[in-house]
């Protein structure tokens, strides 16, 4: 490469104020560029969060009132029958949803991992619910599960007149329709996560076990599943997050009903804040959702950092 002549400008131009200013500006340009987003995000995360906490401690009802009233809205919340229903539903829904979606997702991943034909097609079919909104999912499943239009009707027409499948309109059973729909929506994603894990396993490991005469179910139990252990944790965390935030799915599927039978915390927050004008109690309920999420995410983050550090230490 030709030696470049010393650029004239850099030698000739005497240092002047304008130029120094420009250089100063250039060195802090990255910070300047970042500043607006940083400002917005920090307000969003900390100011908004603090604001909601304050409201939860204040006398706000229909309108905000920032005089402090202490924790009595929390006490009120926890003694409220609707809140009891909401979190009982959440526990029930979450446990069945997590177990169901994990089991089906894992099964599908293992099935697809058997070197099946048209793998891309199967994956596309199982994953598409993820691209569809909860509103659409809930609406369509409401039609399918409704006894007058959906599955029950079909079975009746097939000749089994005494068949009953009316969970959607039964107080005791409606929450299980949310479970069915939720699993339909999420299990494809679980499948994708597990499949990625299965594909990362060293094939030689499995071959060696096969030569030793181990049966496939045994190999899965003893070798493959333990090797993808960390993925179980990721799946759990993802599903728990989905479950705790569940809102639109229930709105579209049951509207929280029949009555209030399928109310979940996110719906109750919405109700308190925007339908009943009990802002402070709504804020208190929102904070419960935040706490529930932190209970999942804080340990997960610590665990993830610990693992990363361990990996780094191993080189």
């Amino acid at each position: 490469m030709a030696v470049e002549p010393v650029t004239l400008t850099s030698v000739k131009a005497a240092p002047n104020h304008g130029r120094m200013l420009r250089e100063r500006l250039a060195t802090i340009l990255p910070q300047l560029v970042l500043a607006p987003s940083l400002f917005a995000t920090l307000i969003y995360v900390f100011v908004f969060c603090g604001w909601t906490i304050w409201i939860s401690l204040s006398n706000s009802s229909l309108l905000p009132d920032y005089s402090i009233s202490g924790f009595h809205h929390y006490v009120e919340l926890w003694s409220n029958r609707r809140w009891t229903i909401a979190y009982t539903n959440l526990f029930l829904f979450t446990s069945l949803y997590v177990i169901g979606a994990t089991a089906i997702g894992l099964l599908l991943a293992i099935l697809i991992d058997q070197r099946v034909r048209a793998e891309a097609l199967w994956r596309t079919i199982y994953l598409y619910p993820l691209a569809v909104s909860f509103v659409v999912t809930g609406t369509v499943w409401r039609w399918l599960l409704s006894p007058s239009t959906g599955v029950e009707r079909v079975v009746h027409q097939l000749g089994w007149a005494s068949f009953k499948f009316d969970w959607l309109v039964q107080r005791e059973m409606a929450i299980y329709t949310v479970v069915i729909t939720g699993i339909w929506q999420a299990s494809g994603f679980v499948m994708a996560l597990f499949l990625a894990g299965l594909r990362s396993i060293d094939p030689d490991l499995v071959k060696a076990a096969q030569i030793d005469g181990a049966s496939m179910p045994r190999i899965y139990r003893r070798i493959i599943l333990p090797a993808i252990g960390p993925i179980f944790i990721s799946v759990l965390v993802v599903l728990l997050q989905f479950a705790i935030k569940t809102f639109d799915l229930v709105i579209a599927l049951t509207g929280g009903g029949p009555g209030i039978a399928t109310t979940v915390p996110a719906i109750y927050v919405y109700d308190l804040m925007f339908q009943r004008g009990q802002m402070a109690e709504g804020a208190a309920a929102a904070i419960m959702i935040l706490l529930a999420l932190s209970l999942v995410l804080v340990p997960y983050t610590i665990w993830k950092n610990w693992r990363e550090r361990r990996e780094a230490a191993r080189g």
Binding site: V45, F48, C49, K245, V269, L293
Partner: peptide
């Protein structure tokens, strides 16, 4: 900044 990712919508409705 990544904390914003975790924020549940319900926490920011009133603000």
């Amino acid at each position: 900044m990544t904390l914003g990712v975790f924020m549940p919508g319900q926490m920011v409705l009133l603000p």
